[in-house]
Structure formats: C-alpha cells, structure tokens
Nucleic acid binder design. Structure first.
Length: 323
DNA sequence: ATTAGGG
DNA sequence: CCCTAAT
C-alpha cells in the first residue's frame, strides 16, 4: 500500500478500512534516493498517556527507533488523521501529528507499530514498511492489547516539535498552545505540562501544540483545524494559525525597514494575503519585543535566528530613545 | 478607521 | 487574540 503524503499517491484522509502504515520516505523528494534524511509518517494512534514518555516526546525524537518508545507502545490506527511526520535530522523540523481514539471508538483498524527498522542507506524512497502482525490479526485486537489506554476519551492532538538549528545545532523543542486547547479539566497531564514549563524543563512555548477539544466532533483532518476551531467556545481564538518562524522574520524585516508602526500600511504592503490583521501584526511585534527585551529571565522564547533577534533588539532600543 | 495598551 | 479608550 502506498502512503500518500510524500509519494503523492493515496489520499488523505485514508479511506475507511484502508490501512496506513508507517513509511520511511524522503521528505525532500517524492521518489528518488536521498541518503541523508529519514522521515517516518504515522497516520494516527491510540495513545497510552500513562506509558508515554512525555518528556522524551517533548524533547524530540532522536531517531526513528524512538517512536514506539515515545508513545509508550502506542497503537496506531488507520483512520483519517493527518500524518505524523517525523524527521530525523537534528537540524530539521520535527513534526508529529497524531489523532487518538478511544478503545471503544469504531474507527479503523488498529495496528501496533512495529519497531522501526533502520533506514537503509540507499533505499528507494518511499519505502513502505510492513507492520508486525498483519492487518487481520490486529483488527481483532481493537480495544485489547497490552497497555491500552483505558477510559480514554477520543482526542485529537497535534504535536509539532520544532527543532530549528540554533547556535550549536541544538534541538530546541517547543510546544505551543497545548494548554490552550487542552480540556480545562480532567487531563492529568495538564498540570504536568504546566509545571514542567514553569520549571523550564521542556522549552514549551505555547505556540505549536494543541489539542482538539472533544466537542469538536469527528474532525479528523488537521488541515481544517483552524476553521474547525473558529467560533467555538473552547477554541476561543478566531484564528489558530500560529505564527511561523517565517512570518515572524518577515514581520521583523519589514519593521526594520519601514519602522515600527503604521500597521495598516504594513498589512497592505507586506501581509496583504496573510490572515494577519494589522492589529495582529501590532500585537505580534509587541510580544516579540517583550520576549527579547530586558533581562532575559527564563522566558520562553520563540526560536528565531540571531540576525532576527538582533533586529528586534535594535528596533526596541531605537524605540526607547524616542520615548 | 486606526492605534495603543490592558486583559 | 480580543476589547476598548483615545486618536
């Protein structure tokens, strides 16, 4: 079976009954060889939160062997979640997107994720990996299986682990908005995450992970996450399109040239097609300035490159003089 | 209609 | 991001 995301075949979400399996493929091209990078895609999963090594997940997977470990022997199912993309190289962006269903969910088949085998040095990509056990067997394991999460409500969750090349190529991992979209109560990891963030153990940064509230129903495709959440009470944000690094850089560069202010003009000249409103731009600048200004306490900083940070600081100090 | 600032 | 007072 083909997995679609990289190869261009297949479609997402998967058809009912279709089994999507983890694949190894080259993230950079759809077919030819690429010896340097490995990508694993997992289409959805049953998560055993208790068995999950949260810290390891948040820190970012080190290699493809970690997947099973990270998710605590998670069960992976075939139904309709957007792919979990997992890029191995330290300097690339790690992104994991999964959708989790409760054991009683009538969705799809369940597969246990076979321990990933090493990516062959010069394997033709994409390479579809066979999962252990075989489909028919595993179908019957629905709801069973060791370490299966018990009363686990249907949840969707997106983890985007971004590792941008920092100074030493260190993997800066961050999570955004996880808390924002997590149910207000009833999820024991909420406090864990919160305190962890406070203690600075994980560089959580409220901007890249979020959990689709249960009441949003059967939405399975993360592509529509933003629109799904629109107007919903739980997702009290109108726009869940989180600022990307590129956007921030673009904003800073524009401000560096045109100066701070004139947000409407800035919007029309530099962000005319963007979802960002003039006020959004203003707000973002304010936040960036705050983040990179003053005594850098243990703030949770967006990972921006040195050049960008310098521009922010120069702009900030320039503004100070005018006060 | 825009912006600055607090929430 | 939203809300609102002040431009």
């Amino acid at each position: 079976m083909e997995a679609g995301a990289s190869s261009g075949t297949g479609s997402f979400p998967a058809e009912d009954g279709e089994i999507w399996v983890p694949v190894l493929s080259d993230p950079l091209d759809g077919g030819s060889n690429s010896p340097t990078q490995a990508e694993i895609e997992v289409y959805s999963a049953y998560l055993d939160y208790d068995a999950m090594d949260f810290q390891a997940v948040l820190e970012g997977p080190q290699d493809e062997h970690d997947i099973e470990k990270l998710f605590g022997g998670a069960m992976f199912t075939s139904c309709g979640a957007r792919s979990a993309t997992y890029i191995k190289e330290a300097n690339l962006t790690h992104e994991i997107e999964c959708e989790f269903y409760s054991p009683t969910s009538d969705h799809g088949m369940i597969q246990t994720l076979a321990p990933a085998t090493a990516l062959p040095e010069k394997e033709e990509a994409p390479v579809t990996m066979a999962l252990g056990g075989g489909g028919e067997e595993d179908k019957k394991r629905k709801g069973g299986g060791k370490g299966h999460p018990l009363p686990c409500q249907r949840r969707s969750m997106r983890l985007a682990l971004a590792a941008t090349p920092l100074e030493e190529g260190a993997c800066a991992t961050f999570i955004v908005d996880l808390l924002d979209y997590m149910p207000k109560s009833g999820w024991r990891h909420r406090s864990r995450l919160r305190s962890a963030r406070k203690r600075g153990i994980w560089s959580l940064n409220t901007e890249q992970t979020f959990l689709l509230p249960n009441h949003l129903g059967n939405a399975t495709c993360f592509q529509d996450m933003s629109s799904i959440c629109k107007g919903k009470k739980c997702g009290h944000r109108k726009n869940n399109d989180h600022w990307t690094y590129e956007e921030m850089k673009k904003l800073v560069d524009a401000l560096y040239i045109s100066g701070v202010g004139n947000w409407t003009k800035l919007k029309h000249e530099n962000f005319s097609t963007s979802v960002r409103t003039a006020m959004n731009l203003k707000d973002k600048w304010r936040n960036l300035k705050k983040a990179y200004t003053g005594n850098a306490k243990k703030r949770i900083l967006p990972t921006l490159d040195k050049d960008c940070v310098e521009k922010i600081q120069k702009l900030a100090s320039k503004m100070k003089l005018h006060l």
